[in-house]
Design a protein around this nucleic acid. Structure first.
Lengths: 143, 143
DNA sequence: TCTTAAATATGACATTTGTCATAGTTTAAG
DNA sequence: CTTAAACTATGACAAATGTCATATTTAAGA
């Protein structure tokens, strides 16, 4: 449903949401360890997100990654679409070209509206929303 | 969520459910075309299913693949588990080790019980159930 | 201005998944 | 009992995904 890469990306962004701001930038190598993702790999993903303005960064001494207000207001779906493309998440359970409510594939009913609900949630939930949940211990990230 | 392989396997088994029985066996190469999956690839998947008694086969002249009564009563989850293993489908949205209702990952709420419902449906729906849907045109398989 | 610390770009490498071909084995039929 | 038709086993190859290393660019501070 989600690739490993977008899972990693989401974890990294959430970590930044909790621990960074413009005056508290974080090095790629210092994100890698707490979210348990290889250093060079998470760097690559963050670069991709940075190119799409989903995370902020500055280079040079005192540089690093962080989330600004705009980044925090972005919805989760943007991260997934940048990393996975928009097809993976939305294709039918049997990858049929023509599968919809009126012309469902055999598995369609088994999934019900579960999947479209999930996508809608990704579309309306922001990074900030999830960060608040984490801060209030309504959800948990570690290992 | 499901690998390509298990999608193919499901399509092949459904095709057999609709078009085969002990006296109407079907050659691997004659399954390949209607479900639009490469011949040698579907053969390999059917062999795996055959080894696990999820499809029936006989070799030699007049041989081929077919579904017996027992095969038709098997639930969908068995096919998915044989092809994908049992981890892929059941792992958490962020692949966290410890993620459950009491200790949810940040995405847990976005999926809700959608996923567990889907799995339950796979566990209780049989090949035969889906075949009936198809025959009654409640669902559709082709391209 | 020079040095150094950091992101960035690029691309090599590994692993997994998906695809295909070949040779071997079984069995019905004559 | 021979032949040929089919599945079966094995493994090679390709593509996608995931992992890592190196060289380049940028910017802060002395």
């Amino acid at each position: 449903m989600l690739s490993n890469s977008s899972k990693y990306a989401l974890k990294a962004v959430l970590y930044l949401a909790l621990n960074s701001d413009e005056s508290r930038k974080i090095l790629a190598k210092n994100i890698s360890e707490p979210i348990n993702v290889p250093r060079a790999y998470i760097a690559k993903l963050l670069q991709e997100l940075s190119r799409h303005n989903l995370v902020s960064s500055t280079r040079g001494p005192k540089g690093g990654f962080f989330l600004n207000v705009e980044n925090r207001a972005a919805t989760l779906i943007k991260i997934v679409d940048v990393i996975d493309g928009d097809h993976r998440l939305r294709s039918c359970m049997l990858s049929l070209k023509e599968c919809n409510e009126d012309h469902p594939c055999p598995l369609h009913g088994l999934v019900g509206n579960a999947k479209s609900n999930f996508i809608k949630n990704l579309e309306k939930t922001t990074i900030n929303d999830l960060a608040i949940d984490l801060e209030q211990q309504k959800s948990f990230l570690p290992v």
